[in-house]
Design a binder for these strands. Structure first.
Length: 272
DNA sequence: ATGGTCGGACCCCGA
């Protein structure tokens, strides 16, 4: 049996638990990693997800903002919820999911700061925070290599809030000075990736120049017609483990579901 | 065409 893993910025898990149920019904992923749950741990709707078969749940939430969670139908244990930038923000959780032969897959679920509007760390503290967060990821990956990425296999996924490639945005030229696609961010994200030589399996399987987006603004009158999206969500596999992934799907249609999130799920299938 | 729309807090903020 393959292991299927979904990542989705849900933009309030309580408001959209029915959409998570729809994803479970239509795609039946073994593991669902959520970001922007906007929900304290005590209020997390665990019961609803347990009824869907996701009996293993790990949450790192806070009131009103941010928040990440992992739902699993396979045995899983929480490894760490690492605080970044001494902010008290809930932006990371790591779990080990059981695989064949006593092995396990370590999943790091991230919600990287969006960074505000002005792409200048001197005048915009939110952008400075975003860059500091990325640098802390690089440092952590580089210094605690074994803990971050055990030999059995590891995954970094989530809303990284950066569209790194020209074909990850609707207009490279028009977004070069827009937060999420500025060179300072895309270079910083590449440093994070290179720290452990993570493999972007989504772009391995759906390579440029094909346009690929996971987020469309709520502000567009007709998101599908305008199609001004960005690829802000990512799935990276540890080097030497990437061959385990034999299928990638970006669920674009979920942007058209009733009262949607502005992000759509990515689903990967692993033979592990 | 430099607007627009969300969600969750609270009387705006972050996205």
């Amino acid at each position: 049996m393959p292991l299927t893993i979904a990542t989705w910025n849900i933009n309030s898990v309580r408001l959209r638990q029915d959409l998570v149920a729809r994803l479970a019904a239509e795609k039946a992923p073994d593991v669902i990693c959520l970001q922007e749950t906007k929900c304290p741990n005590a209020s997390f709707p665990s019961k609803a997800f347990e009824k869907l078969g996701y009996t293993h749940i790990a949450v790192n939430g806070q009131k009103g903002y941010h928040g990440v969670a992992v739902l699993s139908r396979r045995p899983m244990r929480e490894v760490v919820a690492r605080p970044f930038c001494d902010m008290g923000d809930s932006r990371h959780i790591a779990v080990d999911v059981e695989a064949r032969g006593g092995r396990s897959v370590r999943i790091h679920n991230f919600y990287v700061p969006a960074g505000g509007d002005e792409p200048d760390p001197e005048v915009n503290p939110k952008f400075a925070h975003k860059l500091a967060f990325l640098d802390e990821m690089t440092d952590w990956f580089g210094t605690e290599t074994e803990a971050v990425a055990p030999a059995d296999g590891a995954i970094v996924l989530g809303d990284l809030n950066i569209a790194p490639l020209e074909d990850d945005v609707w207009s490279h030229k028009q977004l070069l000075r827009v937060v999420s696609h500025t060179p300072v961010e895309t270079e910083r994200l590449e440093q994070v990736r290179r720290a452990l030589d993570w493999v972007d399996v989504v772009r391995r399987d759906i390579p440029p120049p094909e346009k690929l987006y996971t987020w469309w603004s709520y502000r567009a009158k007709d998101w599908a017609a305008a199609d001004k999206g960005r690829r802000l969500d990512h799935v990276w596999l540890s080097n030497g483990f990437s061959d385990a992934c034999d299928r990638v799907e970006v669920l674009r249609e979920a942007r058209g579901w009733e009262r949607p999130s502005d992000h759509v799920p990515i689903i990967v299938r692993l033979d592990v």
